[in-house]
Design a protein around this nucleic acid. Structure first.
Length: 441
RNA sequence: GCGGAUGUAGCUCAGUUGGUUAGAGCGUCUGUUUGUGGCACAGAAGGCCGUGGGUUCAAGUCCCAUCAUUCGCCCCA
């Protein structure tokens, strides 16, 4: 019989300790920053009734890209492909009981039946943060600040990423009033704007011309040229500058400037999942030349709570994927050196196994994580195991040491070695851990 | 769903116009070394050359199919 494959299921990853450490590092930053902004963690089931996605997203995307099945009771269920419908459902379910503004976050895994490629997997992890119950731009600004602080916490410089911001009301105004497009034409134009960076300017112009009514095409193209040429709001055509939506965007930028976010840019061509966003939309772009792409984003999507029978509730949220963040960190060399959560690997020399276990227990009671070698191997083998497991300290325990209650503690990275007692070992390890987490500030 | 690239040792890869018994580096294991890893030296293990079929006296090499990996397109809640 042929042996089973060791490969993980298509589009999913195994997290061996080395990879899990990276993931945990990312999750720790997410959790720390979310909680620092006053967000409370929530959890939710991996499975949801299929129809909560069908109601929100297009039927097509649900059929083609969700993992779905009929359960033993005949119910159509889906593995969650995103968190937004779930949190909308949860908020609608306890609408009266929650305090507002309700600030909520989760770190959860999702599955989408897609063709895996760079930065995209079938199973992925996301941070989702949402603030419910605030209409004004203050909520928009807070979500963007949160997204930005996460990047700062990862050690990113402002030159490494750009926050692009647009507004759906402004898009609507631009399409209908300024470019004089009907609903169908607007949809086409939005799709085209979305593709703008993937096609040549000539292709963009030609395809735009086809969308306009033929008698209006020439004027329409001129107007689009003005739009696309605008790199700041001030350069926008006068007709658009006078709209209500622009004022809102300007207020938002004022708030961001006060928060010293200098890498936020207005981008009239940013479209992002137009179907259910109702106000501000934003995306964070990686500026690295090899990975110049949208990493994550979010926006305002008032109205989703009403799908579950709730009263209309304003929401601003974002979702940040672990895969793209990891690529960003690797690309900009921002990942710290991560060691095992085991602090000490105890190397046992000679016939002192029982005594070694006793010392290990003393250390454990003080909160030190200790693995004791129980193989009775030669020293070099024991050391090699510990180094492979990326354990930061080695501790040598032999007859001499047991007798004196003084042990040799070796720092694997610096190769320095001290002869010290248990108390000193505890403080050394704790200082090491503290230094590690201080790196993030 | 569409297109490109790639599948040879645990990993990264070499392998000539088809020609005898399958190659390197790294890693692993053993020893030099019964209390200190990374270095050095000596040795060893490890391969259905992704899978199935075809062409041929002869296939890792050529052809077809298939599966997988990967990059892009579509899409991206």
């Amino acid at each position: 019989m042929a042996s089973l494959s060791t490969q993980s299921y298509k589009g999913t990853r195994d997290f061996y300790p080395a990879e899990k450490r990276v993931q945990n590092y990312i999750f720790d930053v997410w959790r720390r920053v979310s909680e620092r902004f006053g967000y409370d963690e929530y959890g939710a089931p991996l499975l949801e009734p299929l129809d909560i996605y069908a109601a929100k997203s297009g039927q097509e995307i649900v059929n083609e890209q969700t993992y779905q099945f009929v359960d033993r009771g005949g119910r159509n269920v889906a593995i969650r492909p995103e968190m937004t419908p779930t949190i909308a459902r949860m908020v609608a379910g306890r609408q009266q009981e929650l305090g507002y503004p309700a600030r909520l976050y989760s770190i959860a895994n999702f599955m989408r039946y897609e063709r895996p490629q760079k930065g995209r997997e079938r199973e992925f992890w996301q941070l989702n943060t949402d603030i419910f119950g605030v209409d004004g731009v203050a909520a928009d600004a807070e979500i963007i600040r949160l997204a930005d602080t996460v990047m700062q916490e990862f050690g990113a410089g402002r030159d490494m990423y750009t926050i692009r911001i647009n507004n759906r009301d402004l898009i609507n105004f631009m399409m209908a009033q300024y470019l004089r497009l009907d609903a169908v034409q607007s949809q086409l134009m939005i799709k085209l704007f979305d593709r703008k960076n993937k096609i040549t300017p000539e292709q963009f112009r030609d395809q735009a011309a086809e969308i306009f009514d033929s008698e209006y095409a020439a004027e329409g193209l001129k107007k689009i040229a003005k739009l696309v040429g605008a790199t700041t709001m001030a350069e926008l055509p006068q007709e658009i500058l006078g709209s209500e939506a622009v004022k809102e965007v300007q207020q938002l930028f004022t708030l961001l400037a006060e928060a010293k976010i200098t890498n936020a840019k207005f981008d009239i061509t940013l479209m992002r999942g137009f179907d259910y966003y109702t106000g501000m939309v934003f995306e964070v772009y990686d500026n690295h030349p090899d990975n110049n792409r949208s990493m994550y984003g979010g926006g305002r999507y008032d109205g989703l709570v009403t799908l579950f029978g709730g009263v209309p509730t304003s929401v601003v949220g974002m979702g940040m994927g672990g895969t793209t963040v990891e690529e960003f960190l690797r690309g900009h060399n921002l990942l710290p050196e991560l060691t095992s959560t085991t602090d000490i690997y105890m190397i046992v020399l000679g016939d002192v196994q029982k005594q070694a276990e006793k010392v290990a227990d003393e250390l454990r009671e003080e909160g030190v994580n200790v693995a004791v070698d129980i193989t009775d191997r030669k020293v070099d083998k024991q050391i090699k195991s510990a180094v492979k497991m990326q354990i930061p300290y080695l501790m040598f325990v032999g007859e001499k040491e047991v007798e004196d209650d003084v042990y040799r503690l070796k720092d694997v990275k610096s190769e320095t070695e001290l002869a010290v007692g248990v108390a000193r070992i505890v403080t050394t390890v704790k200082d090491y851990r503290k230094g590690r987490s201080d790196d993030d500030f």
